[in-house]
Amino acid sequence: MFADQQIKAILQEARTIAVVGLSDKPQRDSYRVAEYLQRQGYRIIPVNPTIECVLGERSYPSLAAVPGPVDIVDIFRRSEEVPPVVAEALEKKPRLIWLQRGVVSPQAAELAAAAGVPLVMDRCLKVEHGRLLG
């Protein structure tokens, strides 16, 4: 578990957040979280092979297809689907990997720890951003 101050520092310095599993449906949690983060000044990079564009940003079919660096990878996937997504995320060398509320993967945590990348599980990035920086 990472200390609030460590998470806060990364959130303050981050500029780009790749949102894996971002939906183009406004009623979905992934959309609401990404929209909030976009309003806070972050560049949102949608990662979803089934959509072309959301929140005014081009969507990419995978993290590997995202050009350039990513500061934070925010994952909206089922827990059992997370380890390969985290493995792919680590190739982008993010400063932080975030698994949304309800998403838990000890295997993904081990992968991130082995790579020296902080990973937060089972917490909402929107809620924590508001608590730490609001």
Rank of each mutant, 00 (worst) to 15 (best):
W98S: 08
P118H: 10
P118V: 03
C124Y: 14
I45G: 10
Q12S: 11
T16E: 13
W98F: 04
L99H: 08
V82T: 11
G56E: 03
T50D: 14
A3S: 10
I75H: 02
I97H: 05
I75Q: 05
E91W: 06
V82S: 05
V33K: 04
E81F: 11
L125E: 12
E81P: 02
V82D: 02
V120S: 01
I97N: 06
P94G: 00
R101K: 13
R39N: 14
P106M: 02
R39H: 14
Q5M: 14
R123T: 11
A18P: 11
R131Y: 13
P49A: 05
F76S: 06
I10Q: 06
R39D: 15
K93N: 15
F2L: 15
E88H: 11
V20M: 01
L63N: 12
D29K: 15
I17K: 09
A64D: 15
Q12C: 09
S30Y: 12
I51F: 05
V82P: 02
K126I: 04
Q107D: 14
P83D: 11
C53D: 15
Q107I: 13
L63E: 05
R78I: 03
A14L: 00
I45Y: 12
Q107Y: 12
R58E: 13
I44A: 07
S105N: 10
G102F: 00
K92G: 13
I7G: 01
Q38I: 02
V82M: 10
Y60P: 06
G21I: 09
E57F: 07
S59G: 08
A18S: 07
R131C: 12
R95F: 07
V66P: 08
P61R: 06
L63T: 00
Y31R: 07
E88Q: 11
P46S: 09
V103K: 01
G41A: 03
M1V: 07
V47E: 02
A115W: 05
A89G: 00
L55K: 06
E81W: 09
Y42S: 07
V47W: 00
Q12M: 09
A114I: 08
A89C: 03
P49R: 01
R131F: 11
G102D: 04
V47I: 04
I10M: 01
A113H: 06
A3I: 10
E80L: 14
D4F: 05
G68Y: 00
I75N: 10
S59F: 00
A89E: 07
K93W: 04
Q12L: 04
Q100T: 08
G134H: 08
P61N: 06
L111S: 03
V104L: 15
Q27W: 15
G134T: 02
S23K: 01
L119Y: 03
R43Q: 13
E128H: 13
A114Q: 12
M1E: 13
R101W: 12
K93G: 11
R28K: 11
